Simulated scan of single mutants.
Amino acid sequence: MSSIVIALPKIEDARKIRSVLECHGLAVASVCSTASNALSSASELGNGVLICGHRLPDMNYLDLAECMPRDFEMLLLASARVICEVPPSILSVEMPMKASDLINTVNMILMQQERKRRKEKKKPKLRSEKEQNYISNAKMMLMQRNHLSEDDAYRYIQKSSMDSGTNMVETAQMLLMLLYES
């Protein structure tokens, strides 16, 4: 779950923005008036959106962007003059802003982060050298004893794995045990 941190020089402004976001169903984890507090909150939360002004008492937005946790996205609230100088990697909303612009932009960022997390989860985890050896040895045994090509041996292990509901490493281990016993 992504989190929202708001960091503006005037704490009253940050609280007003929190109210707007919460009225639209977005939970704000932290409201602060300094970059150091924002960074502290962000690092505890792990991922999310940091909504900030272009200049905080202890840091400007560019320095803050460099210090942010990797899984946090910055949303800069600034005037048109400041926004024209903002690097493309930083999203921004022009002040004065419409509540709908803020809500839509925050929702867009949160949806992108959710998609990215799902995509990361779907990536197959890398096998250790030991696990890879089990699969390679099982393939070799199948190739020698059953005269299969390497691709066919791999597909056989893969299909057996799916049919039995076990992962490929466990299937390779079972095949090796069966082939050594015979």
Rank of each mutant, 00 (worst) to 15 (best):
A38N: 08
S161Y: 13
I109D: 02
M140Y: 06
A7H: 00
S100G: 05
L148G: 00
V106K: 02
D13T: 07
N47D: 08
S33N: 14
S36W: 07
G165S: 11
S3P: 00
M74Y: 00
R55K: 15
S2W: 01
L50M: 12
K130G: 07
L110V: 07
Q173K: 14
A65M: 02
M168T: 11
R117S: 11
P9M: 10
Q112V: 13
S3Y: 01
S89N: 12
N137G: 04
M143P: 03
A7F: 00
C67I: 00
P9E: 15
D63G: 15
S92V: 05
G46W: 01
A80W: 03
S43C: 04
N146L: 15
R70A: 11
R81V: 14
S33M: 06
N37H: 08
E22N: 06
N107C: 13
Q113C: 01
S79F: 04
F72W: 03
G48N: 02
K123M: 11
A99R: 04
H24S: 05
Q173N: 06
C84M: 12
D163T: 12
A65T: 10
D71T: 06
D101R: 06
T105F: 02
D58N: 12
K139A: 09
R55V: 12
K121Q: 15
V5S: 02
D71R: 14
R55F: 13
G48T: 02
S164W: 11
E129G: 06
E85Y: 14
M1W: 00
T171A: 10
K139P: 00
